[in-house]
Nucleic acid binder design. Structure first.
Lengths: 341, 341
DNA sequence: CTGAAAGCGCTTACAG
DNA sequence: CTGAAAGCGCTTACAG
């Protein structure tokens, strides 16, 4: 009973059956008699036998592994991952496990030459792409992936003609809710922080929601209150300083992400302005910090659990040949303290 | 030039050499002539060929993969991972990548039957174990892992006779620094939050440091100020309520983790006590929230980068047969606002 | 420096 | 229901 690294052949010898029968028994094939199957499975358990994944994978051309590719436009020095994406990780891992898949993670610079390799090398059956980045660079890579018949799911809005499938929250609706909330509270001059170009579809969609809410309120969205800012705290900070330096008046800020919102709050506070009395602030994401800063940040929550599970279900669907549609989930406005009211 | 899923044989045909030569060329074997090697590598690039990992792994009995096993005593419902461990993830992934290893992640309940399987199935060459848990349950599992000749690194203190190797910060020194800081600020009655039993060696070590600092100051550590608490915000909260309910006096709190510290701060504030004026608070970990709560938390920082890299270097060393020692890194006291001073 | 050949440990048609 | 056999795509002794 004591074999060092048992193979299915060892189990077969122990059970007095052929190796093929062991293989069938362990995969619960109906072709093998129940009594035989149970006996074999017991022996496998007793000997700590586990099917060699490399051998099985080589035969079946499957790895039962999903590669999670996180990319970020951050500078390579710091290996800190955007906490917003990190919070999805647990859900992704768990739902992958429940469907019988392992999760391989990889951090990539957006500029890296990624990664047809994961699937081509049979390390993963499919990819989940997570990150905010420049859509134009991004898109080229997606096309290359699609060309290579790689299966992948993108976290992000379904952009017209974009290769592959995606899953995201309804960013426009989120932007609308955030802005309407501010408007309903009587705020008149709402600054928008984020990139509005089509290079960043999620931010652009949030901006669309912002505009839409203004129009519905009979206001045309003020152009001088739109500040380009990247998804970094320091950029949120700078954006506010710019606005202040220009002497533009504003009584609210809608930041495209919580990270920017927090930078913005700090800048406001550093300049002696009270949040929310002088300036109300809304973020987007509801990342872990949001509830803990002072004042607690009102924000648009994306349900990370739904996101993680949706992404995994879809990629597994793609892998297993089921039809998959890109889809959107509805975000919720989480009202805390940063808008007063 | 257009092959769908090329194998080394396809590359061989294209290059007019044998398949063996392709294999050698791609592994940069000195056995193949430079000109030949370059030509083959070029063809591989042009055709998007990547070595099939399953086949290579089957031959070599290596996966070039590290499994990262995160376990937590949290209830399974919530798949949120302790942000402290999450912050190590980026560093682990990057340093693994730089050494040519992939990272597989898995969440486990401490009660799960883990995971000889990862190595036995050839999915991973070695394991990194990350989590706080009950040492007694834990230890049994470690012994099973060691029995199965699994290579693993534990994040945590090297406990006497514990199977395997570990890497951690010097928890006792950290506890000492935190407590001495409080004592130096004139605090006299310092509550300790955490489990002090040997079931939780890291917390017990932090407590040792706490006692040690008291002794060095000529004080014997007060026993009625020691409250058992698990690594959850709610437990930190409850611990303070208990102390308050009992009417024990205290002017400072040393919590074994930032998570507990934050729960403690909230409880204090909820009861109208000012932090740090009435009660100073120190945490441990310097997890992402610590700098952002109000007042910003003074805490003992464990260098996550050093931790991640240390863990990876060690497990790769173990995999590649180099001698590896368990070791400790020095933690730093990060002074912010929660102790005044 | 290169090739022919064996074999890693499985899965699955094929035959019975 | 079970077994003998082929073959997945590599790596690496062995021979030249």
């Amino acid at each position: 009973m004591k074999v060092v690294n048992p193979t299915s052949r060892d189990i077969a010898d122990l059970a007095g059956v052929s190796q093929a029968t062991v293989s069938r028994a362990l995969r619960n094939s109906p072709l093998v008699r129940e009594e035989t199957r149970k006996r074999i499975q017991q022996i496998a358990r007793d000997t700590n036998y586990f099917v060699n994944r490399n051998a099985a994978g080589l035969r079946t051309h499957q790895s039962h592994t999903i590669a999670l590719l996180l990319f970020d436009e951050t500078d390579g020095a710091d290996a800190q991952i955007n906490p917003f994406f990190l919070s999805m990780l647990g859900y992704i891992t768990r739902s992958a496990a429940s469907l019988g898949y392992d999760v391989l993670i990889s951090l990539q610079q957006l500029t890296d030459d990624w990664h047809i390799e994961y699937q081509a090398s049979n390390r993963a059956d499919g990819l989940i792409l997570l990150g905010y980045g420049d859509y134009l660079t991004y898109r080229e890579k997606l096309a290359a992936l699609a060309d290579a018949n790689t299966r992948f799911m993108i976290w992000g809005p379904a952009v017209k003609d974009q290769p592959g499938h995606s899953f995201a929250c309804d960013n426009e609706s989120g932007g609308y809710k955030a802005t309407k909330h501010l408007l309903d509270l009587g705020r008149k001059k709402i600054a928008f922080l984020g990139i509005t170009s089509r290079r960043c579809p999620e931010f652009a969609d949030r901006y669309q929601g912002y505009c839409h809410a203004h129009h519905d309120a009979g206001i045309s969205p003020p152009d001088d209150l739109r500040v380009n800012a990247n998804n970094k705290e320091s950029h949120g900070y700078q954006a506010i300083e710019e606005l202040l330096a220009q002497g533009v008046e504003f009584d609210a800020v809608f930041a495209s992400t919580d990270i920017m919102a927090i930078g913005a709050m700090r800048a406001l506070q550093a300049h002696g302005l009270d949040v929310p009395r002088d300036v109300a602030v809304v973020g987007f994401d509801d990342f872990p910090l949001a509830a803990h800063v002072t004042p607690a940040l009102t924000t648009v929550r994306q349900d990370m659990r739904q996101a993680g599970e949706g992404l995994v279900t879809s990629i597994v669907g793609l892998i297993e040949g089921q039809p998959v549609e890109s889809s959107l989930m509805a975000p919720d406005l989480i009202i805390r303290k940063s808008c007063g009211g």
